[in-house]
Amino acid sequence: MPHNHPETELHNPQSTKPPLDPHLKALENEAIHIFREVAAEFERPVMLYSIGKDSSVLLHLARKAFYPGRVPFPLLHVDTGWKFREMIAFRDEIVEKYDLDLVVHTNPRGAAENVTPFSHGSALYTDIMKTEALRQALDAGQYDAAFGGARRDEEASRAKERIYSFRTPDHRWDPRNQRPELWNIYNGMIRKGESVRAFPLSNWTEVDIWRYIQAEEIPIVPLYFAKKRPIVERDGMMILAEDPRLELLPGEVKREEVIRFRTLGCFPLTGAIRSGATTLDDIISELETATVSERQGRAIDRDQSGSMEKKKREGYF
């Protein structure tokens, strides 16, 4: 992508930070290696940017990988239209600050058929507004490689996914027939129309993500920190009640609670947790004694066991 790039100051003013510990350094090195390899081997890479903490780490690593150059591929945000408002504001600020190319795609069916998490249920809504939307955006951009922030520790079916995860022209993942992946040698050979999803954070755990955010002072959406916020309880989840499109059902009461979010997605499908964690230190110590996994707050993973595998086969990230 030709771009008039200003000369970059080589001595980065951020260098006052203490060096990373060897554990995080090893994870960072691995991720940078993957970024560079994909950028060199593929013609049209793109980075999936979901605005969450993993995406924030992914973006930071991309900037490190290509420094002093610019990030040599665009960011793609699949916007369902139901994200937290603070996420969108954060996204636009980051894109501006780091001089990034951003592509935003929303499935037109959302508006045309009025597809909402309330009207269609979480499974169908996710299928249309996330999975289908992602396929549309990848096809439109003719991207042959897409970076994602998925981690193997997130969910059982992810544990076997490769770092270069091969997809057919219709974006399908065949878990039974994955390419073997040895050492740090990645096979990026594909035919026209086929693509690869690349996961630089494969070997990171949730604690690693938070410790890295802390060590590298990476900006994240404020919703991760505890604050008194309006919520409503629904299906055993605490949902943020600030968007006027959220209609209270009979018996539901809006109230204020000190809460935060462990993961961010579409606000009607993302449950908050009661937490007083207002700093990264608080979050990390909360996490290290946590007894439930981060995906517990996500409605879409609970539909059925093996539901993530099913969604992934169909092209979900």
Partner: peptide
């Protein structure tokens, strides 16, 4: 892995 040339005055080898 790749050659970095963000501007005329910089040429670096990344790996």
């Amino acid at each position: 892995q790749r050659v970095s040339r963000p501007g005329e005055s910089f040429r670096g080898y990344q790996g």
